[in-house]
Amino acid sequence: MADKCHLCLLGLIFLSSLLTGLSGVDDAHVFISSGEDVRLPCNNALPGCKYTTWNYERFRDSAAVELVAGGRKKTDIEKHERLSLESDCSLNIKSVTKEDCGSYICQQWTGPKGQQKQQGTNAHVYLNVLHVSSSEISAGRSVTLYCQLYSYPQVSFNDLICSGGIELFWVNQAGDKLKNSDSRYQISAPGHCIFTLNTTIQNEDENREWRCEVTHRNKVQTSTTYTGKSSVIEIIVKFAVFAVFAAPTVILLQIICDRRAENKEKP
């Protein structure tokens, strides 16, 4: 038990150093919500970025994918259209997805081709993506909203994040934190860095917003909002019901109008 506590403590110290920059000037943590654009800084950049390389690792033991080489982005990778390199060698990613989370490594190389040498150390940027999804939603029915922070690596590192001064929680439109003490909401944490909000959607909830926030030491890092809307299926059903009841009325009015027209035509 003591060994486990000691290991956990070391993990928390490591995480804290990453978040505060004490583990080295080259490390950084970036938090972003899915769908937004993000800029990943390169803290060991050389002027011109001619020898800049960006590599990406989804998991700790996965093979690194080269995104940028020699200051130019690779065109044979799936997300190359969403990537761009700035003049300070930082990497831009448009419309971030939860699959973009992971470790991004900026390197600088100099020298002739085939004899290049790395200049300085690796600049690590850990991208954490906040993503919200939901079960099918319709008025008068229970709905579950899922808020999850995707990190690197996905399992063990999430454990450290959830216990390292970082919090996930749901707030209402007024910014008040939602709690289980409110009989309308049931909040739980069923897995690694995932918080769920269960509630029953009412008619007055149309366009109501619920927001999931990520904070580090009480400072909001990023947030994402879910807006309550009737499902497409529900709208179709309502329209169909309306049509069923409205059709006889329309037909009756048409008959009355036709008979009046006939009576006017009679001498």
Rank of each mutant, 00 (worst) to 15 (best):
Gln115Ile: 00
Ile161Ala: 07
Arg211His: 00
Ala45Ser: 15
Ser223Lys: 11
Glu81Asp: 15
Val25Pro: 03
Leu12Thr: 07
Ser84Lys: 01
Ser135Val: 05
Thr227Gly: 03
Lys117Leu: 11
Ala247Met: 11
Cys193Pro: 07
Pro267Ala: 12
Ser188His: 07
Ser231Leu: 02
Leu19Thr: 03
Ala189Asn: 13
Ser135Gly: 15
Asn263Lys: 14
Ala246Thr: 06
Thr225Gly: 00
Thr249Val: 15
Leu160His: 12
Val129His: 05
His131Phe: 09
Leu178His: 08
Ala174Gly: 02
Cys89Val: 06
Phe169Val: 03
Val237Thr: 08
Ser156Asp: 11
Glu209Val: 15
Leu12Gln: 14
Ser33His: 11
Val65Tyr: 02
Cys212Thr: 07
Gly35Thr: 03
Cys101Thr: 10
Ser33Trp: 00
Tyr150Leu: 07
Gly191Asn: 10
Val96Ser: 09
Pro47Met: 04
Pro248Asn: 06
Glu136His: 08
Phe195Ile: 13
Val25Ile: 06
His192Asn: 14
Tyr152Arg: 03
Thr144Leu: 06
Asn128Gly: 03
Ser181Asp: 15
Cys101His: 12
Asp182Tyr: 01
Glu213Arg: 14
Val214Asp: 04
Leu67Ile: 02
Ser181Lys: 13
Arg82Val: 01
Arg211Asn: 12
Trp210Asn: 04
Gly24His: 05
Val143His: 01
Gln186Pro: 00
Gly228Gln: 11
Cys257His: 10
Leu19Gly: 14
Val25Asn: 09
Lys179Asn: 13
His124Lys: 08
Leu130Asn: 10
Asn198Ser: 15
Ser188Met: 10
Tyr56Ile: 03
Ala247Pro: 01
Gln254Met: 05
Phe14Lys: 10
Trp170Leu: 04
Val68Gln: 04
Val250Trp: 08
Leu22Asn: 11
Arg58Ser: 13
His29Thr: 09
Gly120Asn: 02
Leu197Ile: 08
Asp100Trp: 04
Asp27Phe: 13
His124Thr: 12
Lys113Trp: 02
Tyr126Cys: 02
Arg60Asn: 07
Thr199Val: 12
Glu262Pro: 00
Phe14Arg: 12
Gln173Pro: 00
Asp88Thr: 03
Cys212Arg: 06
Leu197Val: 06
Gly111Tyr: 03
Ala246Asn: 11
Leu22Cys: 01
Leu197Arg: 09
Glu204Asn: 14
Pro41Asn: 08
Ser90Trp: 02
Asn158Thr: 09
Gly35Ile: 04
Lys177His: 05
Arg184Ala: 09
Ile194Gln: 15
Gly21Tyr: 06
Ser223Thr: 05
Ser142Thr: 14
Phe169Pro: 01
Asn55Lys: 13
Tyr185Pro: 02
